[in-house]
Amino acid sequence: MILRIDHVGVVTNDIKAAASGMGLMDLKCTYEDDVDVYGVATSFWQCPGDTTSIELVAPVRPDAAVHGHLARLGPGLNHVAFEVDDIDADLAALQDRGAILVDEKPCQGGRPGLRVAFAHLGPSTGLLVELVDYGNRA
């Protein structure tokens, strides 16, 4: 079951320059790390008192998952991430309903303890969604 919008992902070729843009809006970086399975660097930005984030995503190697997006569309909105309570069941439900899975199984995400999986909702929205599951988060 979807619990909430967790973050909005924005791809960039230059994460440091994009971080400067987040600073212009007084957003604070709350976490940053590389996600090896996707070949990207990430940083998460939030407004004080809000748990929803903007995630900056930049390639760190030639086979990075975001190169196709950057080549076709350039920097900008990449995905909307939804926190779910059971990523395995929710990923299977999306597939049963006709979503096109990018990830057949959840992978390690860009924050500690986070499991993620991506899916396309189809051409009518053009939306890439990310399911995120923090497991037993308090």
Rank of each mutant, 00 (worst) to 15 (best):
A81S: 11
R61I: 12
D85K: 02
V132Q: 02
D26W: 15
A92L: 09
L70P: 00
P106V: 12
K16P: 01
D33A: 13
D88S: 02
G21N: 09
G98L: 04
S43K: 02
D96I: 07
V132G: 10
V35F: 02
A99L: 03
V37K: 10
G9N: 05
D103G: 14
V84N: 00
L24E: 06
R111A: 13
F118R: 11
F44A: 00
R61L: 10
G49Q: 10
E104R: 15
G110W: 03
G68E: 00
Y38S: 02
G39K: 05
D103P: 11
T51H: 13
V60F: 06
G113T: 07
L94I: 02
V84M: 06
A64M: 07
G113Q: 07
A117L: 10
V60C: 09
W45D: 04
E104K: 15
A19K: 00
K28V: 13
D34S: 10
A119C: 03
P59W: 02
L56R: 11
A99D: 04
E55I: 01
R97E: 12
A58P: 01
E83G: 06
V129Q: 04
G113L: 06
L24I: 10
P59I: 05
L121T: 15
G113Y: 12
L114N: 08
F44G: 02
L56V: 12
D36W: 05
T30K: 07
V132M: 07
G109Y: 02
L3H: 09
L3A: 09
E83T: 08
A65S: 13
R137G: 14
C107F: 07
P106T: 11
V66C: 06
